[in-house]
């Protein structure tokens, strides 16, 4: 993906028709490029799709910052009362901390385990490697919902139910196969000659790994870590099943109970949604430029 300068342009406020200005006449094209679509054939569907994407976000932010009881579609006057309600009243402050703990722990665990396994898959051939690769692929088809009952039983045996560790473990394990495939691909792309040169210079294999390979794996680790964090942050079913005390709820569980309240407080629900969205949107903004490349590298994520 070519890095457009436009990526760094200031983000326009959503819902105010960022699309029309996004399709201003392009600079004169260099000759001998392939024939383009007429401009309106891009502008019209793109504008419609941008509206489809942005209206739900705008609508949520609108609810979150306009005073209860008002219905204007321009949020004025602004209020933070809904954020106060969810953060302090409903307990999203604690849910946020729990989700962060689980997300960061799953991120670290996934990166460490997948790094060592991915390096082995990329640099060694060993008995059982093919079987392992096939088994990893097979796990792509294991639905989270199917694992609820057996994992709950297992965590009960290990005395891990109602503990955030159960979520760290479950999220890490579900993240491992994709991360191993991704990271072994990244290691393969690093010329082995670089490592060999370090060995010749007297580095041990471990030192060569940390000095030569690890710095070059930064993009791979960013991708794997981001995916692990996002999936862990978004995970709902495991947290719903394994966690029973309210002070250990994660954000999605807290949100789902806010939806299910007998009379829904839309302002609070929207503010909770904003709290849930902010971390993953930040991570997304950080990695979106690498997303298309990552996908072509063979990573396939739901």
């Amino acid at each position: 993906m070519t890095v457009d300068r436009a990526v760094h342009a200031p983000v326009q406020p959503p819902g105010q028709g960022s699309a029309p200005s996004g399709t201003r006449p392009p600079a004169p094209a260099p000759p001998r490029r392939r024939p383009r679509l007429p401009r309106w054939e891009i502008a019209v569907p793109l504008t419609l799709y941008l509206l489809f994407t942005l209206i739900p976000f705008y609508w949520m932010v609108l609810y979150a910052i306009r005073p209860a009881g008002t219905t204007g579609i321009v949020p004025w006057p602004l209020t933070l009362e809904h954020f106060d309600t969810v953060w302090n009243g409903i307990g999203f402050g604690a849910y946020f901390a729990n989700s962060m703990k689980v997300g960061v722990a799953a991120l670290v665990a996934t990166c460490v385990v997948a790094l060592s396994g991915g390096y082995a898959l990329a640099r060694f051939s060993f008995r059982g490697k093919r079987l392992f690769m096939v088994a990893m692929l097979g796990t792509q088809f294991i639905p989270g919902a199917m694992m609820l009952i057996p994992l709950f039983e297992l965590f009960s045996m290990l005395n891990l139910t109602d503990s955030l560790w159960s979520l760290v473990i479950a999220n890490t394990v579900f993240q491992l196969p994709l991360s191993l495939i991704l990271l072994s691909g990244f290691v393969r792309n690093i010329p082995v000659e670089l490592e060999e040169a370090a060995w010749v210079d007297g580095c041990s294999r471990i030192r060569a790994f940390f000095a030569v390979v690890l710095p070059m794996l930064r993009p791979g680790l960013i991708a794997v870590g981001s995916f692990a964090f996002i999936d862990s942050w978004n995970n709902f079913l495991f947290a719903l099943m394994f966690i029973s005390s309210q002070d250990k709820y994660t954000i999605p569980v807290g949100l789902s109970y806010t939806i299910g309240e007998f009379s829904v407080d839309f302002g609070a629900l929207a503010a909770g949604g904003v709290v849930a969205a902010v971390p993953v949107v930040i991570v997304f903004a950080f990695i979106q430029r690498f997303l298309v490349q990552g996908m072509s590298a063979g990573a396939v994520k739901g």
């Binding site: 890095v3 457009d4 436009a6 996004g22 399709t23 799709y49 997304f284 979106q288 430029r289 997303l291």
Partner: peptide, 16 residues
């Protein structure tokens, strides 16, 4: 087209 990077980022956002 102009602003393509921003347009891509926006329409891909629901992915997360």
């Amino acid at each position: 087209f102009r602003w393509r990077g921003l347009a891509r980022a926006t329409v891909f956002a629901p992915w997360v």
